[in-house]
Design a protein around this nucleic acid. Structure first.
Lengths: 208, 208
DNA sequence: GTCTATAGAATGATAGAC
DNA sequence: GTCTATCATTCTATAGAC
């Protein structure tokens, strides 16, 4: 899925071949940026390197992105759109489970989502890039996708703001530990069911 | 407390005045580095800026640190030594509380510790510096201080490795959310007692 | 759209005088 | 120990030819 068409709200007119090529190159640049950021960390990303991987010279990137910050912006937004798509998928596949067990699979999937790309995790959830923060437009996308996730959690009885904060802390903490201390393993993924039951039971108990 | 004397294992001979001045300047450099990293993020730290704050020129820093990485190493080790000292303090002041309540104060203090310095948090717990990782010596200090923390948690019945991993996930998750989303407030600090009881009760229940 | 050339700035680090 | 001078590199970004 191509970033800038996703952002369009008005019905898009059929793209010309020129526009198609433009979007495709843009997508290739983004893809190269993700792969490089995976190796160097998001803060170590270099436009020259991105250009080299795509087979362009650095100045040519400016045809597709106004600045390095704009590239970061596109990556940030893309990460949150991927999260939204993943949440939709998770909540569709928990049909016949007990709520606490279903929450366990959601948390496990969440950890895997974070683990899948260190660069994506860094740009979405940490402040790893000195001097950069998302633009208002990109930030709005993150807020929207967060809300979507919050709505999905309501199905598990997690509606109280404090409970939501507790949930995000537990889920993000599991992911952070997994990434920092066992980046290729499942040491904290395995704890997802236990954590889910612990959270679920505690919330239920406090409701009574 | 001055860093390099802490690292000495052999009984230290009385320092000459020259050595004292050297250690003092070294400490001033570290202090300046912390303050600057607080503003720019640890990854944005610049040796020229550090030198400027201390009142030296950049090359003079190399009398006190062999390289920028060595400065990072000293900051990393200092952070873990501060954590060790803080843990000792926390565990000494929980005398007359119920275990679950005492655990709540420990978690709250932990979040405050992380919140107190973003730079310290970044260098200790995230991989925010592209291309840098702690030396073997500095890493050994972090392992030792972690073990000290693990021993302190045994007093709360947290001894099972999985329970320890769950604890670190919850505690670090609360801190991460606090820093990322409410850096100057207490939105997740307030959840520390709830989280502590949730953890404590769950661990106790699973033991039976 | 892509390129070469380059501006302009910052960085970590070293050589060598004092 | 501290300095000046400088190296060598890297970086984002722009100007302008093609």
């Amino acid at each position: 899925m191509i970033f800038s068409t996703v952002l369009d709200i008005e019905p898009t007119p059929a793209p010309t071949p020129r526009q198609r090529r433009h979007e495709q190159t843009r997508a290739e640049i983004l893809d190269a940026a993700w792969r490089l950021a995976e190796e160097t960390g998001i803060a170590g990303l270099s436009l020259r390197e991105v250009a080299r991987v795509v087979g362009l010279k650095a100045p040519s990137l400016y045809t597709y992105f106004d600045s390095k910050d704009a590239l970061f912006d596109a990556m940030f937004a893309e990460g949150y759109l991927q999260l939204g798509a993943a949440v939709t998928e998770w909540t569709a596949t928990e049909a016949d489970l007990e709520p606490a067990d279903a929450l366990g699979t959601v948390i496990g999937s969440w950890i895997r989502f974070c683990q899948h790309s260190l660069a994506r995790y860094q740009i979405m959830f940490t402040r790893a890039i000195p001097g950069w923060e998302p633009s208002a437009e990109a930030y709005a996308i993150s807020v929207r996708e967060y809300q979507r996730m919050a709505e999905a959690l309501a199905a598990f009885g997690i509606t109280d703001p404090g409970d939501l904060d507790l949930y995000t802390a537990v889920a993000s903490g599991l992911a952070a530990q997994q990434i920092a201390n066992d980046p290729t393993g499942d040491r904290w993924v395995r704890l997802a069911p236990t954590a889910a039951h612990m959270l679920f039971d505690d919330i239920e108990r406090r409701k009574r």
